[in-house]
Design a protein around this nucleic acid. Structure first.
Lengths: 217, 217
DNA sequence: GATAAAATGAGGACAAGTCCCTATTTTCTT
DNA sequence: AAGAAAATAGGGACTTGTCCTCATTTTATC
């Protein structure tokens, strides 16, 4: 943090209109100073490397590099900016993944305007904050044993991820096989393996998962 | 219009933050007066019936009643508010559908801030306006013969729509059959019929269509 | 170089979806 | 009341995806 009273903040979201609205609300908070706006993860990463940013308010679903990838990248580069995520998805699995990766805040876009002030206070003190409607899930995350790890896409191998992304685009096995120059049989096998890792079974369970998780892959 | 110089405007979008940003930009335009904000189509409809609204700026993808349904409803009720749509989807099929239903403006969220002023000018004069990047498509729509109608979901029967929505949720034939208390065979038949109406063929062509069009169904 | 993980591919049984066909009943429209 | 449109459902052939099994090759990692 620059000093006791001022926090340098960047906003990362692919909608300029939403950024404008967000900026307006953020700047009403004493000590909050927005020093940059970025429309995708890549642009934000540059800024995060170059400057000393206290807080990054980032959307999960973005082009080029999504919010999760950006957070992962910052972990690798030991950039110690606090990440506050803005999302319209109130899913437990997403919240847990983000917390596992070290996210400090999780705000639903619906209620962000009301929660923002207390979120900033809490994060400034080094604590985690999530939207009030999801408060119970934060406690659940804190107390859960680290052993009972969630089944998630983070356990997939690189090729399995590629297959999953292709599935999310509703491609058939044949199309995927042609895309990656492998046999249909191999694609089938990957599907089965992925389903096992994610604990899925049934005809369209994997397809459903892929489509629903598409923004976070 | 209230008088020559002032337009009554409502904003309809499910993201409060985006509405704030939009409001800020709209209110910088001389003669533009935002008299209401609504988070879904149903709430907006009430307002449109009760008051005399000149312009409605509406998102396509919303809960309860989406933008297209709202426009259709207003057509039925002969409400003569000018609709300007805000969307992140730059798809020809969506643009054409909206224009067919009488939409006056079509702005991409990306560039809405820049286009807004000229959009208002144009719509005020009774002309149609679309984001500059899609200008060519507007000309295409104007000159196209009315006979060569687009294949679209608007040609589907009520039951076919229900099936399509269920497909968009990645439900299997079995699940759909159970939902609507009909046989799997009937669901199969509906799928084939829908595919024909939309000019689709192949294993997952319909499923792909359903998922991609989900926000506009 | 040895071991482990990842990626590749196949055989075979089964489940699910596609796409023709036909047919009856229900609902809407005039 | 008559005709059209929509919804229902089945037969049967075919394609695609699921999910076991097993095996080989490639790529990291130590």
């Amino acid at each position: 943090m620059s000093d006791n009273s001022t926090s340098n903040i960047i906003l990362v979201d692919d909608h300029p209109l939403l950024r404008s609205g967000l900026r307006m609300i953020v700047e009403r908070i004493p000590g909050a100073k927005v020093i940059g706006e970025y429309g995708d993860g890549e642009a934000a990463l540059e800024s995060l490397r170059a400057h000393s940013i206290d807080i990054a308010m980032v959307d999960v679903d973005m082009p080029k590099m999504n919010g999760i990838e950006l957070l992962k990248k910052c972990n690798e580069l030991t950039i110690r900016t606090s990440f506050i995520f803005l999302t319209m998805y109130n899913e437990k699995s997403l919240l847990f993944r983000l917390l596992d990766f070290g996210a400090k805040g999780f705000l639903l876009k619906e209620t962000a305007a009301e929660d923002l002030h207390s979120c900033f206070e809490t994060v400034k003190e080094g604590e985690r904050y999530v939207s009030s409607s999801l408060r119970a899930l934060l406690e659940q995350w804190k107390t859960r044993s680290k052993k009972q790890k969630q089944l998630s896409v983070d356990d997939l191998t690189p090729m399995e991820r590629k297959i999953l992304s292709a599935l999310a685009q509703l491609k058939t096995n044949k199309e995927i096989a042609e895309t990656f120059f492998i046999s249909e049989k191999t694609v089938e096998n990957h599907r089965v393996n992925i389903s096992h890792k994610l604990g899925l079974q049934g005809t369209h369970a994997l397809l459903k998962f892929a489509v629903e998780q598409k923004p976070f892959l």
